[in-house]
Simulated assay, not measured.
Amino acid sequence: MNETVKMAGVSKRYGNATVVGDVSFGLHAGETIALVGHNGAGKTTLIKLMLGLIRPTDGLVRVLGENPATGDFVARQRLGYLPESVSFNMALSGRETLRFYARLKRVDIAAAEELFERVGLAPEAVDRPVRTYSKGMRQRLGLAQALLGTPRILLLDEPTSGLDPALRRSFYDLITELRGKGTTVLLSSHALTELEGRTDRVIIINNGVAIADGTLDDLRRIARLPTRISVKLSQMDVAPRWANGGMKWCRNEDGVLAAEVLPDRKVPLLHDITADAALISGLTITEPTLDDLYAHFLRTQVTK
């Protein structure tokens, strides 16, 4: 895949404080990446480095082949950015705001008008002052300005903050559309649950260090966390052979047996369970979530 962002051995220090330490990764065209970590972990600093707003103390940052801090305007024009806390001139209308940013970015103002519908900003709101907007409406306006000029790279910091569930779904539909067109999308978010199934890759940052990087399947394989298997029995008093395999099974009042199974035991156990198909009326497999993996990698880093 075509690499759009490269960070190699990047560190950022302010005096004696190291905010980012020796971080290396590449982002690629058509890839959606979740950048996750607690407040102060270094996520926003990494985004600012990609934008060229700050320069690394050590290491190399390249965006579309250019140094973002010194590169030409054309490369920066292909970047879209939505900060965590959007801030606009409250006296301007939504239309005036987007036209202002279109002129700054030197993109077609007429094309900017189409973005209001794409981000779900109602026509009756477009010509109202931004001071009358709710937080969600300002967030949608911020997303519209990030999309100006059909960017090749989108850097979105807490992009769904203030959006209701329906608009969150619309937002991720838009991200899927952009990904299909080859846009690199970096999502920095605390909303780990909603990121599952919507990103190709997860980078976990803690104390300025990238402690994990890979697909969800990659991270599950590395973490070796147990999978929860729940089996609803067709008969309450039955004692299946596979329930005597040395694992701790818990049975509830509805006749459901549940156990946590390590990765190397999962497939053989499922084979045994499905071989006794007449004994089961339901089967649920719950893999470790992104929340589980995030907590695991944080614990692992602390105990090293």
Rank of each mutant, 00 (worst) to 15 (best):
T4G: 00
V10K: 02
S11R: 05
S11D: 04
Y14K: 01
N16D: 13
A17R: 13
A17F: 14
T18A: 14
V20F: 02
G21A: 13
D22M: 09
D22G: 05
H28V: 02
A34P: 06
A41T: 08
G42M: 06
T44A: 11
I47V: 15
L49G: 03
L49E: 04
L51M: 14
G52N: 09
G52I: 11
L53T: 13
R55A: 14
L60V: 14
L60I: 13
V61G: 05
V61M: 07
L64I: 06
P68M: 08
P68V: 07
A69K: 04
T70N: 08
T70S: 14
G71L: 05
F73D: 12
L79W: 01
Y81A: 03
L82P: 03
L82C: 10
P83H: 09
V86Y: 00
S87L: 04
F88G: 10
N89F: 14
A91C: 00
L92E: 04
E96K: 09
L98A: 04
L98I: 13
R99K: 07
F100Q: 02
Y101W: 08
R103D: 14
R106V: 07
R106M: 12
I109R: 13
A112I: 02
A112G: 08
E113F: 04
R118C: 08
R118H: 07
V119P: 05
D127T: 07
V130L: 04
T132G: 06
G136H: 00
R138H: 02
A144L: 06
Q145S: 11
L147F: 01
L148Q: 07
P151A: 06
I153H: 05
L156T: 08
P159I: 09
G162K: 11
P165G: 10
A166P: 00
R168P: 01
R168V: 12
R169V: 14
S170R: 15
D173P: 03
I175R: 02
I175S: 04
I175N: 01
T176D: 15
E177Q: 14
L178R: 15
V185E: 06
V185Q: 02
L187V: 15
L192T: 07
E194H: 09
E196V: 08
G197C: 06
T199I: 15
I203Q: 01
N207W: 00
A210H: 00
I211Y: 04
D218R: 10
L219F: 02
R224T: 09
L225I: 07
T227S: 09
T227E: 08
T227Q: 03
S230C: 04
V231H: 02
K232Y: 01
Q235I: 03
W242C: 10
W242F: 03
G245V: 11
W249Q: 10
N252W: 10
E253F: 06
E253T: 13
A258R: 05
A259D: 03
P263A: 08
P263M: 09
K266W: 00
P268L: 09
P268S: 10
L270H: 07
H271Q: 13
D272I: 00
D272S: 12
I273V: 15
D276E: 15
A278I: 02
L279N: 07
I280M: 12
S281G: 11
G282S: 06
G282A: 12
L283V: 10
T284Q: 11
T284E: 14
I285Q: 13
P288N: 09
D291C: 03
D291V: 10
D292N: 13
A295P: 00
